[in-house]
Write a protein that binds this DNA or RNA. Structure first.
Length: 291
DNA sequence: ATGACGGGTGCAACCCGA
């Protein structure tokens, strides 16, 4: 099994993000891309991106929705057994397009957009918790060769928000949300970015307002959770902060994880991971954009 | 500063996001 690069990105409208998305795709060259917040239905997605991704060798699994939500997986290493939604997943009140899964290069890949929750103890918050329970059931029933990717809308720990005091009483950091995330992890998943950078300041989302990105005041809510056999193959795991810079960015940055070849595969040359490809200002030397 | 930005759409005295 060859090395595989997996990325996940909440693009906050794929239509608006096209000028950033295609150059990013060509520059980073992920083999599998999990997308969230397409804000487009399946037909709109096909019309907008079908030819562009086909000519780059990707197959799409899309679970779109007009106006809100919408998730997808693009893969150039195979795309089998696509499922949309979560079995018996709750709606608000009707099911929303927040989950799609497929098997790519032997790994079960989930692209997820977890409900926001809005206000603790609200109906939407209870929906979020119920949704996470059904997600856990789905992952528990699946293979150990799995990556659960996406906008989890939960900061796993206080270190994952810029100011824990500012978030007291807000969603994304409450006990029940973190416990629901922990129950998902307890199925046998690893938070691979945190595991590789246990003490770094790492965020994946920064509010558009008030210069939050440039002050590096954000949250780490976009996660890649890998089952044991996949976590053992992780050679690099980082937030692509470059994609949050410049003109017309999403308010989320992509998370990128490189898997080495599977243990039983052919052993090829091993490319060392970047020394510190992380989020700290000035710490990153990233490739330039294509001309 | 209970705001700021930037998506969406009924173009607003709108809704939603994290």
């Amino acid at each position: 099994m060859a090395p595989v690069r997996i990325a996940t990105w909440n693009v906050n409208s794929i239509k608006q993000r096209m000028p950033r998305f295609l150059p990013w795709l060509d520059e980073r060259g992920p083999d599998v891309v999990c997308l969230q917040e397409l804000k487009l239905d399946d037909l709109g997605f096909a019309g907008l991106l079908g030819a562009e991704i086909d000519q780059r060798g990707y197959q799409p699994a899309v679970h779109g929705e007009a106006q809100w939500n919408g998730v997808a997986i693009l893969s150039r290493v195979g795309l089998e057994d696509v499922t949309t939604g979560i079995p018996d997943g709750p709606g608000f009140p009707d099911p929303e397009a927040r989950a799609v899964s497929a098997t790519c290069a032997g790994v079960r890949v989930h692209s997820l957009y977890v409900p926001n929750g809005r206000v603790p103890d609200s109906d939407h918050y209870r929906y979020k918790l119920a949704w996470l329970e059904k997600l856990r059931d789905q992952v528990a029933a699946g293979p150990r060769e799995v990556v659960v990717c996406g906008d989890m809308n939960i900061a796993p720990a206080d270190a994952d928000v810029y100011d824990p005091a500012a978030y007291v009483g807000q969603t994304h950091v409450t006990g029940p949300e973190r416990e629901a995330l922990q129950r998902l992890l307890d199925v046998g998943l690893h938070d691979v970015v945190r595991d590789h950078w246990p003490d770094e300041r790492i965020f994946s989302y920064w509010d558009y307002r008030a210069g939050m990105f440039h002050r590096d005041l954000g949250m780490r809510i976009d996660l890649v959770l890998a089952g044991d056999p996949v976590a053992e193959r992780v050679k690099a795991a980082w937030v692509d902060r470059q994609a949050r810079k410049g003109t017309g960015p999403s308010d989320h940055a992509p998370v990128i994880v490189d898997l080495d070849e599977a243990p039983d595969g052919d052993i090829g040359p091993v490319v060392p991971p970047p020394s510190n490809p992380l989020t700290r200002k000035g710490a990153v030397k990233l490739p330039q954009s294509r001309p």
